[in-house]
């Protein structure tokens, strides 16, 4: 990586309109290599749509998304092997065992030594005991670990996480956060994290973007935001932003 290397994500004037309703109102931001960026926002703020556009699953109405300098609208397949995604809202096939699922996704991502990689992941994420059980028979916490394993199968340089700890008990959620921190340190990966959990964002993220009604309402480091708003936690900052009157087009 050189100083001139393009950022992990570079978004310019990104806009998404659904049936005349503006869901994402033309904002710009970037994610530096090795950085963890938090996307905060209430329900319907546009977080998932933004992630969908970064992955190429949702077409932008206007603007551009570049990942590692590659325009996702033109050549997304050139960069998809370097990315991965996790969300509790996208499942793994229930009838396949954990090992079978990881093998299939490993092959899809072109992982060279799949068996070795599965053993590595099983050890790192404590999956050994249920590697040969059907994915659908696992608990919510175990399923989250499997989804995390799938998202790390190709050792991605860019990881997109959509509420990765939603509906998890505090212990399992803490465990997932620790694993993400470990992965980032070990691989220098860039992470975009959409979350409703302010403590999680405060702990994991170098920088935070607060979205509101499809715009960027504010952004900064967690500490910087807390100081600027004169609050004690990011949650209080979030509530201040969420309850302030909406001002479209004031994106930072």
């Amino acid at each position: 990586m050189t100083e001139n290397s393009p950022p992990a994500i570079e978004i310019r004037e990104l806009q998404k309109r659904y049936s005349g309703v503006l869901a994402v109102c033309g904002f710009s931001f970037s994610l530096a290599r090795g950085e963890v960026l938090g996307l905060l926002g209430g329900n319907g703020a546009g977080k998932t749509t933004t992630i969908g556009m970064i992955m190429g699953l949702v077409l932008p109405s206007a603007g551009s998304v570049k990942v590692f300098g590659i325009d996702m609208a033109k050549d997304r397949y050139a960069v998809l092997p370097r990315m991965n995604f996790e969300s509790p809202y996208v499942d793994m096939p229930h009838r396949l065992t954990v090992r079978q699922n990881l093998e299939v996704f490993g092959r899809l991502y072109g992982v060279q030594n799949i068996k070795k990689r599965i053993i590595e992941l099983a050890r790192e994420l404590h999956l050994e005991e249920f590697l040969d059980r059907e994915s659908g028979a696992l608990s919510a916490g175990q399923k989250t670990r499997i989804a995390l394993a799938k998202s790390l199968i190709n050792e991605p340089d860019l990881l997109l996480l959509d509420e990765p700890t939603a509906s998890l008990d505090p212990d399992t959620a803490d465990w997932v956060r620790t694993r993400l921190e470990t992965y980032r340190k070990a691989h220098g990966a860039s992470i975009l994290l959409a979350s409703h959990n302010m403590a999680e964002v405060e702990r994991l993220c170098d920088r935070v973007i607060i979205m509101k009604a499809g715009t960027i309402a504010d952004e900064g480091t967690p500490q910087n935001l807390i100081e600027r708003y004169g609050r004690h936690s990011l949650e209080e900052v979030f509530l201040d932003v969420a309850r302030a009157p909406a001002t479209q087009g004031t994106a930072a």
Partner: peptide, 27 residues
């Protein structure tokens, strides 16, 4: 480009077709 443990097939890939067939066969 990254030097990670994967191979990128720039065009049509029979490996990925095989991965999907494996998935349906398991099912």
């Amino acid at each position: 480009m990254s030097t990670k443990n994967y191979r990128y097939d720039s065009g049509f890939s029979f490996t990925r077709v095989g991965a999907l067939i494996l998935r349906y066969t398991y099912l």
